[in-house]
């Protein structure tokens, strides 16, 4: 559906360090030329950040060594852009509640 080769990766961080990890990672991405184009820190996800990247995020890469970055969430299906984009909307939780 999307016209992109990028994927969304969920990265685990220490709780309370989400913004710091995102900022450090964005700086590393810019100097090392890793394919990271955006980093999302939704307030509702404690201990996680979402990274948009054209290359697989591998924390064994020394360019990605950042304090308080704990790991990559490995999932069968990963996170879709649709899911990530929900965090960009003003009321992501309320709109997803099913009435019943």
């Amino acid at each position: 559906m999307e016209d992109t080769n990028n994927s969304i990766y969920a990265l685990k961080t220490s709780v309370g360090q989400e913004r710091n990890v995102a900022r450090l990672l964005s700086r590393k991405a810019q100097v090392s030329g890793i394919g990271i184009s955006a980093i999302l820190v939704p307030e509702s996800l404690k201990g996680y950040i979402l990274v948009e990247s054209s290359t697989k995020i591998d924390l064994r890469n020394p360019d990605l060594k950042v304090q308080h970055l704990r790991g990559v969430v490995e999932g069968k299906h990963g996170i879709t852009f649709e899911e990530a984009k929900r965090f960009l909307k003003p009321e992501p939780i309320i709109s997803s509640i099913q009435k019943g």
Partner: peptide
Amino acid sequence: SGLLIITDPEESELAKEL
């Protein structure tokens, strides 16, 4: 609230969305 860091707007699908 909430933080979005855009490093490469031309390549980012999230940047395009906003």
